[in-house]
């Protein structure tokens, strides 16, 4: 008689265990494919690159010499015999392009996003947003080629300048070499990433509570004061997200600096390409540079998440 309630309880707990196991299994089944994907194609390759980066002078067909931080030291340690400042210059230039692109996108993107979110006629809004991101539907390669035809010596830009100086007697505007300069890289990168900036800022500005702007005006703030003391602080998380995203992607972009940039506008992404598939073929160094870039981008993403988090905490 006493066995029956015990066995009942036992059966019950068995049932419970079974349910828990099923739930766990369900979660695992859902998570397994993306998890496997991440491990196979992201975590393992990254570890592989980390491993290769620790072998100085590893080239295809040659085994490197030893195991250690030699590749990193070549880039960062000025007291190393193999140190070459050109790598730091390239990293610096990449940072400069990324910063310039981010600033240009912010300065051009904010007014556009502001207009789209707060001033454009409501029923045209969706259409205008789609129209603005239309360039993203074409390949970035095509877009870069389009810029080549604009910026090349006999291209549209120089023809336009020529036409202008023809129209203004006495003024002789110099014909410039645009293609294969830093300016070309900055123009191309800005053109490429502006839609992303606009989209993110638009999403942020669209959520802005109009009554806050009215309240500011009501309290006597001029439109300029309202903009700097209410609109900008209220959309700061969006501004931070847009800037970080443009910074990260423009830093890693390969197509634009390769097609529009010249020998003097070497960036870290081009340099890494050269180490693996280009002339130099130094896999160890290429891997080390890749690790540096992965680290830098991870840092940026951490910043992005932190800002995002703080915002959601504030909202809650």
């Amino acid at each position: 008689m006493t066995a029956s309630p015990t066995s009942k309880r036992w059966r019950f707990s068995q049932l419970e265990l079974g349910q828990q196991f099923k739930r766990l299994l369900g979660a695992l089944t859902l998570l397994a494919p993306p998890g496997l994907w991440l491990i196979l194609f992201l975590v393992l390759p990254t570890l592989l690159i980390l491993d290769i980066s620790l072998v100085p002078g590893l080239r295809p067909g040659e085994s490197g010499d030893g195991y250690g931080l030699g590749n990193y030291s070549r880039v960062f340690n000025p007291f190393d015999a193999a140190f070459d400042s050109v790598y730091l210059q390239v990293i610096g230039r990449s940072l400069y392009y990324a910063t310039g692109t981010t600033l240009a996108c912010l300065l051009m993107g904010f007014p556009v996003a502001y207009w789209l979110a707060l001033m454009a006629p409501r029923r045209w809004r969706n259409f205008l947003v789609v129209a603005f991101i239309l360039p993203l539907w074409t390949s970035s390669l095509l877009r870069a080629y389009a810029w080549i035809s604009i910026l090349r010596p006999s291209g549209l830009l120089n023809s336009f300048i020529g036409w202008l100086s023809g129209g203004l007697p006495g003024v002789q505007l110099p014909e410039q070499a645009w293609l294969y300069t830093s300016a070309a890289v900055l123009i191309g990168l800005t053109y490429n990433f502006l839609p992303y900036m606009v989209l993110i800022l638009y999403a942020s500005l669209e959520k802005l509570d109009i009554s806050l702007l009215e309240a500011a005006a009501d309290l006597g703030a001029t439109p300029r004061q309202t903009f700097w003391q209410v609109t900008v602080p209220q959309t700061l998380p969006g501004i931070a997200a847009g800037c970080l995203l443009v910074f990260i992607t423009s830093m890693g972009d390969f197509v634009v600096p390769t097609l529009l940039g010249g020998a003097s506008s070497m960036t870290i992404s081009r340099l890494i390409y050269n180490q693996f598939l280009g002339i130099t073929r130094n896999w160890g160094l290429g891997s080390a540079l890749s690790m540096v870039m992965i680290l830098a981008v991870s840092l940026m993403i951490a910043l992005l998440l932190k800002y995002g988090d703080r915002d959601s905490v504030k909202e809650a």
């Binding site: 309240a215 009501d218 700061l236 504030k314």
Partner: peptide, 25 residues
């Protein structure tokens, strides 16, 4: 000056800064 239905307080400012806003501008 208006008291809004939704209050329209500036959530990036403290209570004190909210109240001081009109005088500050």
């Amino acid at each position: 000056n208006t008291v809004f239905q939704s209050y329209a307080l500036f959530n990036h400012m403290t209570v004190k800064d909210n109240i001081a806003f009109g005088l500050r501008v």
